[in-house]
Design a protein around this nucleic acid. Sequence first.
DNA 1: TCGATACGCAACGGTCGCGTTTCATAATAT
DNA 2: ATATTATGAAACGCGACCGTTGCGTATCGA
Lengths: 202, 202
Amino acid sequence: MTMQQMEGAARPAGRPRSEKAEKAIIEAALDILGEGSGVSELSIEAIAARAGVGKTTIYRRWTNKEDLVVDALASLKPPIPPLKGASVRDDLVAYLQVVRSESIHVRTRCIMNIAMSQSDRHPRVAERFHEIAIKPRQAAVRAVLERGMANGELRADLDVEMAMAILSGTMMWRTKWSSDDDLPADLAERIVDEALRGFRPG
Amino acid sequence: MTMQQMEGAARPAGRPRSEKAEKAIIEAALDILGEGSGVSELSIEAIAARAGVGKTTIYRRWTNKEDLVVDALASLKPPIPPLKGASVRDDLVAYLQVVRSESIHVRTRCIMNIAMSQSDRHPRVAERFHEIAIKPRQAAVRAVLERGMANGELRADLDVEMAMAILSGTMMWRTKWSSDDDLPADLAERIVDEALRGFRPG
DNA sequence: TCGATACGCAACGGTCGCGTTTCATAATAT
DNA sequence: ATATTATGAAACGCGACCGTTGCGTATCGA
């Protein structure tokens, strides 16, 4: 018995799959989605062409488009900002500023659109996106709010879910229905200040 | 000179276009969009088939799909609720309840999705939708808020645009990321009450 | 070296929707 | 009646992708 055979994932014979190709495929898919295509307009041929890869190489790894998109979304590491500022206000402003700055980049914008608009048609994709990109952020915001409730910066009876919806929803609404350039620079601060007015004790 | 010739739109000779066909086409288009298709997946052939109409009849009236969709969206009469209640709170609750109830119907939901997600790819469509479905509602809400500011129910220095974004954005966020059934029945009231906490004077 | 597997590439037959045309028929003005 | 335009149906050639296959080459383990 050789060392190799003892390894957990008994390596099959023959040429191993190219990791580079795999990354190129996922990157190409995200790229095309980032240009505004919906999931159904995303064609395997286009992905293969852009990735510089044969269609075979794609079909060998994923049996359908949805699985590919799910993996692609999963590869998006959401850059959660630290949020360990001095005050609840600072943390929330920092968070919403990240959201705002992302909404300006076309790629982020389109991928967000996909996740939001195709939840009926492609529930698995939307669910995965929610898991990857939304939940961790919501958890971070929730931590900030709960910290504030604990130390008295916020009302003790604050409805945390509602507060999170107010913060994220307001920013989303503004970024949706505005052209990029008429988003005021201090939008994050203004949203937080307006929201906090109702979140504070008293 | 006959009466007919004196009419504003000098009726051309020959068989007139069928109004019924026109309505059937638009209805079919909305129907398919309401099932979750994006604009680009919406095929003329499918519209014709569902409307019980020849493709000729469609191509004779619209030169491209976008124009058809624009007209279809324009045919959506937004049922703006009256909003003449006793208080700002009552009006806002009534408004958000309409929004909430619409978000449950698949058709409304999908058409909303289209307008929101395809603004990059089909700006004319999104713009038209905004004109038809968003602006009048926002105007109604703005009127309620301004009335409240005038009679002292709301702070005199309230940022009206921000307040509208908070109300609509929060409801949208909740309806987006929730399955229909875990939307609490009193969601509208809870959003309004939470928001008003910061909108009131003092 | 040899067997096995993956690679990029090109071609296959098949489906779908495109936008156009033709056809027989229907509806309207003169 | 006759001229004119619209209608639904069917068929056209065209191009985009589909998912599969065969090809020669590259990369691995034994």
